[in-house]
């Protein structure tokens, strides 16, 4: 018995330039908001961008972006609709706002299914909002998606960074390119995270300060991109682009 889906995943992604997985060691570090703002910042820089919410049990980007009643078109697979200029894919098209209580093997099957049916058009960047940690979804993405680079989000908390270290170690051991680490929700003027990231031989991409105005801007992309949070992510986006370009040049 062969699974015919595995053969076509690469083909489905062949028109995508760079795939950036926004990941974290644990939940609650602001990964989905960073992923959404990163995708919008890349869009604002004139790129063709897709956003794929791969957090099937706790999707959030549809709320952050306020995508409304979109649904993919079926045409030899499915074509992700445009949401605020982003090609947008999420399990919420199919699960709506209901709980999706999936075990690891179901998460794997759903990821394979969606990767196999989704026809991404020509994109410069596909940003993937990953579920936290190094469980099934992360392992499946590492197994199935070629040419992916990771952007890792942490907070200044030792608890968050401890789990990020594990993720970074795994990625390094597997030879998966890591663009760097974003430190989110920063409150103090000095934090030991930059030094610790650099000690691990990773790039510290930048600091995003805790922004009390962020919550009120969720669901409205214009408001969102006007926040201090999004301005910080936009600066980091330039650094992300620069690093990805130099990586490509060095190949």
């Amino acid at each position: 018995m062969s699974d015919p889906r595995l053969e076509i995943i690469g083909k489905r992604l062949e028109k995508v330039g760079r795939i950036v997985a926004v990941s974290s060691g644990k939940g609650g570090v602001g990964k989905s908001v960073v992923a959404s703002a990163l995708a919008l910042a890349l869009r604002d820089r004139g790129h063709r961008v897709g956003l794929f919410d791969l957090d099937f049990t706790s999707p959030a980007t549809h709320v952050i972006l306020g995508v409304g009643d979109l649904f993919p078109k079926e045409e030899h697979g499915i074509i992700p609709p445009l949401a605020h200029g982003l090609r947008y894919m999420s399990i919420t098209y199919y699960a709506l706002d209901k709980p999706a209580p999936l075990r690891g093997s179901d998460v794997s099957d759903a990821i394979i299914e969606i990767l196999a049916i989704t026809r991404w058009e020509e994109l410069d960047y596909l940003v993937v909002d990953m579920p936290p940690g190094i469980g099934d979804a992360t392992l499946d993405v590492l197994r199935l998606v070629e040419g992916i680079s990771f952007l890792v989000v942490t907070t200044p908390s030792r608890v968050a960074f401890e789990t990020v270290k594990k993720l970074l170690t795994l990625l390094k051991e597997l030879g998966i390119p890591t663009i760097g680490v974003v430190e989110n929700m920063v409150m103090e003027s000095s934090s030991p995270i930059r030094e610790q990231v650099e000690q691990l031989g990773q790039n510290y991409l930048g600091t995003v300060r805790l922004d009390p105005g962020l919550e009120g801007a969720l669901g409205d992309v214009n408001k969102l991109m006007g926040t201090a949070f999004a301005k910080a992510v936009t600066e980091i986006t330039s650094e992300v682009e620069r690093r990805l370009q130099s990586e490509t040049t060095n190949l």
């Binding site: 399990i91 199919y94 699960a95 709506l96 709980p99 209580p101 998460v107 759903a110 299914e113």
Partner: peptide, 22 residues
């Protein structure tokens, strides 16, 4: 929905015995 992503069966269907989606 189930046709596109069969795993969403767990969203819409429940065990007829105990009502669990597991």
């Amino acid at each position: 929905a189930i046709h596109f992503v069969p795993e969403v069966a767990h969203v819409y269907m429940k065990c007829p015995g105990c009502g669990s989606p597991d």
